[in-house]
Amino acid sequence: MIRYNLFSDYVLARNQIAIDGLTLVTELELDQDEGANYDLTPNNPLLRRFTQGEIDLFEEIFKRDMNSLHDM
C-alpha cells in the first residue's frame, strides 16, 4: 500500500511537469507530440525524492486515474 501523501506529492510534481511541457510546446509552437516527452525520472528536479520504481508505480496509478476520469 502506498502512502497517500507521497502519491499526492507525485501528482503535484507530475502536473507541474505537464504544465511546463505544454508551455514549452505553446511557446515554441511545436507539435504536441514533441512536447509530450516528459522527463519522468529521478533526474527531473521535481521528482528527485522518488525512486524510479515509485515513479513507475505512481505513473501507472496516475494514468489509470486519468483514464477513469475521462471515461465518465
Rank of each mutant, 00 (worst) to 15 (best):
G21F: 00
M72S: 15
R49S: 15
V11P: 04
L46S: 13
E29D: 03
Y4H: 11
F62K: 03
L40D: 09
T26C: 11
R64E: 13
M1C: 09
K63N: 15
N67H: 07
L12G: 12
L28R: 15
L69Q: 13
Y4M: 00
M1Q: 09
A13P: 05
T23L: 15
F50R: 01
I61F: 10
L6K: 07
F58I: 00
D71K: 10
F62E: 10
M66T: 14
R48D: 11
E34S: 03
I2T: 04
G53Q: 14
T23H: 11
L22M: 09
G21A: 01
A18P: 04
D56F: 01
D9Y: 09
L28S: 13
S8H: 05
L40G: 05
N44W: 00
N5W: 02
K63H: 12
S8R: 06
D20F: 00
Y4S: 14
D9N: 10
V11D: 11
Q32A: 14
N43Y: 14
E60Q: 07
N5A: 10
R64G: 02
L46G: 10
F62S: 07
L57Q: 09
N44V: 06
L40I: 02
L28I: 03
L40F: 14
F58T: 01
A18S: 04
I55W: 09
L46I: 02
M1W: 04
L24T: 06
R3D: 14
R14T: 04
D31M: 00
I2F: 02
V11A: 10
I17W: 00
Y4R: 06
F7V: 02
T23F: 12
E60I: 01
Y10N: 04
T41M: 10
D65R: 09
I61N: 10
T51P: 09
L46N: 12
G35F: 02
E54A: 08
L46Q: 12
D9A: 09
R48N: 13
V25A: 14
T51C: 09
R64V: 02
F7Q: 03
L24G: 07
N67R: 11
A36L: 00
V25W: 03
L47R: 08
P45F: 05
M1P: 12
I19V: 08
D20P: 03
D9G: 03
I19H: 07
T41A: 14
T41D: 15
I17C: 08
N37H: 05
Q32R: 03
Q16T: 08
R49N: 13
D39Y: 05
M66A: 15
R64S: 11
P45T: 05
D31R: 03
P42N: 06
D65T: 08
M66I: 11
I55Y: 06
Y10E: 07
E54H: 10
R48W: 08
L24F: 07
E27Q: 15
L46A: 14
N37I: 01
L12H: 12
L69F: 15
I55L: 08
M72Q: 15
E34P: 03
S8F: 01
R14D: 11
L57F: 11
Y10G: 07
T26N: 14
V11G: 11
Y38E: 03
I19D: 07
Q52F: 12
Q16R: 06
D39T: 05
I61L: 12
L47D: 13
A18F: 00
E29Y: 00
E34G: 00
D20L: 02
V25E: 12
L22N: 13
V25M: 07
R48S: 15
D65N: 10
E60T: 06
A18D: 04
D31E: 06
A13N: 12
S68L: 06
T26G: 12
